[in-house]
Design a protein around this nucleic acid. Structure first.
Lengths: 123, 123
DNA sequence: CCCATAATGATAAACCAATCTCAATAAGTA
DNA sequence: TACTTATTGAGATTGGTTTATCATTATGGG
């Protein structure tokens, strides 16, 4: 059966503290604040089981390694800060995407990424 | 000086025939129709010099290798077909993205990806 | 408290995209 | 045509992410 370890608690803790999509590396570093000896393999293993349990979702980002975010959120998109490299969530959705779709094509899904500077990285 | 080779002509030909963002692998396969012995290294070398010359642009796609498209096009976004894996261009742009940006964040750029089925892959 | 075994850490290995190496080829000027 | 040298192809190599290995640790039911 699934055991409750300090490592997994730390990873779950990071996800609820930072409410944004995280890379395995970011998760490792934050989790090490709580459990210093935690290794990258444990992070990947935990992410895999959380993904299978649908506790977290994979976020594919252009030109970056996969990120992971807690599942069950409302539909949203992402903001990537070019200064600090962090990715944030943005509620809502631009309407009227159907208008962009070429004739004869069928839209099933969409993603929007906005790039710029986050509130902590102004000027 | 820059020499005009059959390989480079083939690659330029593929770009103008297929008017969409192509992966190095796609370029290799299409170019081999014209120059069967062309190798992947040549494709990458040619893409690098075309990128430096700003003849082509890199398109970063979520969860996929980089693609390349001819430079100088109007602002547009991309449609990815889940059936055939090809990526297409879509003219235009959803307005009103500023509305999504969290307070204090500054938008510099944006990308939109639509997923679904292209006209050749219906039902 | 015991103990079966799930989980971990360190590191090696697998993967894949992209680049490098180098001998062979071929473009293009004289 | 001859020659300089840019370009090529094949395969090795790199760099980064992700997975596998395996001896060790530690959870949690009995």
């Amino acid at each position: 059966m699934q055991r409750d370890t300090a490592q997994r608690r730390a990873i779950r803790g990071v996800f609820s503290q930072e409410d944004r999509p995280l890379t395995p590396q970011e998760l490792l570093e934050r989790a090490q604040d709580t459990v210093p000896q935690i290794g990258l393999a444990t992070v990947y293993r935990t992410l895999k089981s959380m993904t299978e349990a649908e506790t977290v979702m994979i976020v594919d980002v252009p030109g970056e390694p996969q990120r992971y975010e807690l599942a069950g959120k409302d539909h949203h998109h992402h903001f990537s800060c070019r200064a600090c490299g962090r990715m944030f969530e943005m509620d809502g959705c631009p309407g009227d995407l159907e208008r962009l779709v070429p004739k004869g094509f069928v839209m099933e899904d969409h993603e929007v990424f906005i790039y710029g500077r986050c509130v902590d990285c102004q000027q």
